[in-house]
Nucleic acid binder design. Sequence first.
DNA 1: AAGATTGTTGCTTA
DNA 2: TTAAGCAACAATCT
Length: 278
Amino acid sequence: METIKNDLKKVILDKKIILVDVKDKKAVKSVFADFLKVLSGNEFEDILRVGKLLAFKLKRNEYLLIHLKMTGQLIFCDKKKCIAGGHNFPAAENNPTKFTRAVFKFANKSELYFNDMRRFGYLKIVDDDNFKKIKKAYGVEPISKEFDLKNFKKTIQGKKKNIKAVLMDQSLIAGIGNIYADEVLFEAGIMPTRPAGRLSEKEQKEIFKAIKIILKRAIKHRGTTFSDYLDAKGEKGNFTRFLRVYGRAGKKCYKCRGIVKKIKIGGRGTSFCPKCQK
DNA sequence: AAGATTGTTGCTTA
DNA sequence: TTAAGCAACAATCT
């Protein structure tokens, strides 16, 4: 989401929105007429990110919220090229696809496609007050300065839930999902099943450090399932190569050469190394 | 063909 | 009252 936000900020700000072609009304979680009314003729002034939620700031203190959930994509196209963000998208140049739920059309003929195969994602207009309320429901931004060791210790203090569930709890820490939770705990050498409140000082510090390292690395690689243009051969990009434990069940651990295991925690697939993570 | 899949919400239970 | 646990949401792929 951080990558998508940064990429889109370069191209869609201060462009007049001529119309929004909504192909799937279910994707819009506001009163439909209001949604169109707020957007038409408006402009995006900024893009903010709250955890995995994107907030496109509009004129008159309103925001377009976009959540991509599992399979959402945002693809911006102008005359020259398409840039894209989101999960496993097909050829950016083939838009609209059968999964295109809405198209934002700008005055200069450029377009923003909201695609979503599984239809979990949504678009929503909120005012300033509402946005503040939504933001409040999220925990600290882990890449911010405000998130320091002291803050983290306080966050996990007394928690009986396992550490993986705590890392993924958006109301505690914003933005860590299933993949990065596994990566963080592998980096820190901690078993995902450990009750968060019973980790030692040293372990807490290791996890804190790992959060910073993993997120920094992920952003450096432009996110996990982000792929940009098709290359000259028409092949899809793949940027999951920097992952060290997620999706590697049955393979050799990069640290100890033992076998990476997979279990279920809270209904989610969880990859870990039983030898390296205690 | 059953079980898996990157996220969140809202209900039930403790 | 709050925290934890879990099904549900939908559509694909293996």
